[in-house]
Design a binder for these strands. Sequence first.
DNA 1: GTCAAACAAGACGTCCCGTCCCGATATGGT
DNA 2: ACCATATCGGGACGGGACGTCTTGTTTGAC
Lengths: 193, 193
Amino acid sequence: MNARRRSHDRTETIMQTALDLALEVGYAKLSMEAVAARAGVGKDTIYRRWPSKALLFLDAVLSSRTQGLEHPDTGDIVADLRQVMTRACDLLGRPPWGPLYQDLIGEAQHNPEVAAALNERFIQPQAADTLARIKAAQEQGQLAPDFDLDLAFELLSGPLYFRLLITHEPLTPAYVDRVLQAVFAGMGPRPQP
Amino acid sequence: MNARRRSHDRTETIMQTALDLALEVGYAKLSMEAVAARAGVGKDTIYRRWPSKALLFLDAVLSSRTQGLEHPDTGDIVADLRQVMTRACDLLGRPPWGPLYQDLIGEAQHNPEVAAALNERFIQPQAADTLARIKAAQEQGQLAPDFDLDLAFELLSGPLYFRLLITHEPLTPAYVDRVLQAVFAGMGPRPQP
DNA sequence: GTCAAACAAGACGTCCCGTCCCGATATGGT
DNA sequence: ACCATATCGGGACGGGACGTCTTGTTTGAC
């Protein structure tokens, strides 16, 4: 059992060191040599646990930032969505974690393993949580009864990711409010009540 | 003048060769040595024109795919948006260009020069074109008069980019229709007419 | 106390970026 | 027609990092 224990300690140490170094120099300049040296382990010890630098980085980033993004249910769907979206922007949309998350998605563009793991371990759970909360809201009559719920997460997240990855503008609470306002109101002309 | 002409020829040859090679092996495995060898030029000749592999790649991708995404104005805003969005998905959302565009955005995540150039040369013009078309539609009463027009482009493009970059699901015309439908209808409950 | 597995350290082969050098070539002025 | 200059092709070079492999050592299990 102590072997397991020691082994687990090393795994934690390596991930933490990788994260620290990534925060200091960024993913592009993160080297396995540097991780091994600072963690005080041999490179083999790292490669025995992760098959590549990219997957170590993925574990390092995801393992520490996937908490605290569950939806509350206060009864007010807009307020609940705003809270989660704002919190996500705070966590992933600005330093120190923002650049790392950007790099992770960048890496996913040419590394299918990273892309798949990112989806399964982070995106899909978040989408499922959003869907559940939104379904409840629809049943309570807080949403249009015929709205395409499966699209809601992408509709709300898409603009945020667009800012994060394409225009690289800051993700402010004000922007979250604008997105919510627009998505709820809809773009088409409204019939006069 | 002939110097200019020769020079221009070489620039074209190098960009085309870089594009061909990128289509064959992808950006990650694209090497300057290979580009120089196949183009029959020295590496200096490339580095005299582009400061890095990333910016050569950017030029190569953007120079050949930025046409044909202007908005028509048939008088039907939904039909016009659908046409442009569908065409954009066809061009950028699937092979052979899709992976290159993904890689370009991936590179932009850790290369500010690439990010800035991509924005200025591709994203912003497209956003401006969309905004102009949408403004006209609003003035004709085809859109809600108080809708946040500056947000429209991000609202419509965001979900498409989300699929392209995050979930890597295919960008089909059916998906474009769903996005348009949802964005126009809005998520909130509608007053009974 | 013995042994096998895991370990730290680091050498190694490979790849490729970006720079530098050199001999060849073509250009444009005269 | 001819020469001076800038550009060119080819390739050597230094540098850095990935991922593998080797070696001798430490650790925990039995």
